[in-house]
Design a protein around this nucleic acid. Structure first.
Length: 453
RNA sequence: GGCGGCAUAGCCAAGUGGUAAGGCGGCGGUCUGCAAAACCGCUAUUCCUCGGUUCAAGUCCGGGUGCCGCCUCCA
């Protein structure tokens, strides 16, 4: 099945057609001015699942995800804290990696930092100036928006309408208020790099054009990021790269919609957000993945405790089944194909439909379990395992529970004997105590079993 | 003001013009010493509203109403 994704630029679904077997993807990462929040995580989880799916489809994936470790806010916030800007950037980068690792999100193939690509950035800025699409002004360099006729093609904006929007940052250095900085002169005490225009630092959008070009070349397959980046960030990336080289930039654009909080978008500047670290402390990593993938990536959705609790219940339905199936079938096996899943994910990565299939399998498996049909059980289980793997779920059984298994078996035997002796009071007492430790004991026809919550 | 998106059960959420997936929750039943899990049944004659196209509309078109995003740093 041919994979198609909705492309923001052409405003339609577009087949993914890499030139060779490698899919080249640039995913806009964080500006590490502050701690990662759950809104960031939505995009990372979607990309992680997409990447696993494409790998399942037989592609190699080269995923470049930047860390923008220098910008105005990084400087401001580190100054406010009285620490070196590098320390702030590294601290937030570390936290991001800690959180994404915990969420079973694979690290990108390359995770380039803006400050490690100053040379490429300067080259690109120089080229834009040479082509007449940028100008220097008192140590700053600005992109000349009016010189580039295709400006606005991604976001569908019109320069003159933007102009009348009135909320544009004025600057005496700019020729036109819409022009944006490619390079910013360093003020006293600010970090700087040497450039043909004096001491300074890159503007916000240029690092992504430079790094994507450096690692992926022109016309790479997919450029992804949050919906809020469409304008101006991605619009500017296109303008910079295409104005400098005359080559096409990304072939397709994928934008993940916002995760809102109380009806509004999460935002670093207003503090209207939920910190990522808090969420992974409170919930199993699979729960956030469930919460994320049950909604299509192009639909806005709301972060709520109720939603997370609901996702937890849903996830428990899966793990409960897996534990029961394992008791009958032994160690889990994987199907090699699952055409229905392939079809729904190939159609603009419809993960909510995929979750529907997952729960259908759980239901079929439970039916088989109830009727004692071992073949049917195995069929559902192997497909389910494949689906979970493709979507990036990681049931806990893979985490070395083996070490305590003997001990658990002992407890199960103990309860069985108490029940056989009709010492129900003690049997229940044991179950309660076990539950306090976060484990659930259940009596079934096949005997008592124990599972993690 | 300009551009874009969305309105589907108590809640979350899919839905290619052909007769409303799935999850959570709730109710009834089966099983059980009790519980949990699971299974069986029920839980939207209808998809914000008004009009239109069509043999047929949640799906297409137009007018309302409401909500969200972007136009400023943002995933």
């Amino acid at each position: 099945m041919q994979v198609e994704l909705y492309d923001t630029l052409s405003r339609q679904k577009k087949p993914l057609e890499p030139q060779d077997n490698t899919v080249r993807i640039y995913h806009c990462g964080m500006t590490v001015q502050s701690r990662p929040h759950v809104g960031h995580l939505r995009g990372y989880i979607v990309m992680d699942a997409l990447r696993r799916f494409l790998r399942f489809k037989g592609y190699e994936i080269k995923l470049v995800q930047n860390i923008t470790d220098i910008d105005d806010k990084v400087i401001e916030k580190s100054a406010a804290e009285g620490i070196d800007w590098r320390m702030l950037a590294e601290r937030n980068t570390d936290e991001l990696l800690r959180v994404t690792d915990a969420l079973n999100i694979e690290r990108p193939t390359v995770m380039p930092r803006a400050t490690q690509h100053i040379e490429e950035i300067i080259d690109l800025v120089s080229k834009i100036i040479e082509k007449g699409h940028a100008y220097e002004s008192k140590g700053d360099v600005y992109f000349d928006v009016r010189s580039y006729s295709k400006y606005g093609k991604l976001s569908g904006k019109n320069i003159d309408e933007l102009e009348s929007g009135a909320r544009i940052e004025p600057s005496e250095n700019k020729r036109d208020p819409l022009d944006f900085a490619l390079w910013k002169a360093a003020k006293q005490g600010e970090p700087y790099w040497y450039s043909p225009w004096g001491k300074g630092r890159p503007g916000w959008h240029i690092e992504c054009s430079a790094m994507s070009a450096h690692y992926l070349g022109s016309e790479f397959d997919l450029h992804a990021g949050g919906e809020d980046l469409v304008f101006p960030h991605h619009e500017n990336e296109i303008a910079q790269y295409e104005a400098a080289t005359g080559n096409g930039f990304a072939k397709a654009w994928m934008h993940v919609e916002m995760l809102n909080l109380r009806g509004e978008k999460m935002s670093k500047s207003t503090g209207h957000l939920v910190v990522a670290s808090d969420v992974i402390e409170a919930y199993d990593p699979n729960v956030l993945r469930m919460f994320t993938l049950r909604v299509h990536y192009r639909a806005q959705t709301e972060y709520t405790i109720e939603g997370m609790d609901e996702a937890r219940s849903a996830w428990e339905r899966i793990t409960t089944f897996l534990a029961a199936a394992q008791q009958v079938l032994g160690e889990p096996a994987l199907a090699t194909e699952y055409p229905k899943l392939d079809a729904v994910l190939s159609d603009d990565f419809n993960t909510p439909k995929a979750m529907g299939l997952v729960f259908d399998l759980v239901h079929q498996g439970n039916e088989a379990l109830a009727s004692g049909d071992k073949d049917k059980l195995a069929e559902a289980t192997v497909k389910l395992n494949l689906a979970l793997q493709i979507l990036g779920f990681k049931p806990r059984r893979e985490e070395g529970v083996q070490d305590v298994k003997t001990l658990l078996d002992l407890l199960v035997r103990f309860r069985s004997e108490l029940r056989a002796a009709k010492a129900f009071e003690w049997a229940d007492k044991l179950r309660e105590m076990i539950q306090e430790a976060g484990l659930i004991m259940e009596d079934t026809k096949e005997g008592t079993r124990i599972r993690f919550r």
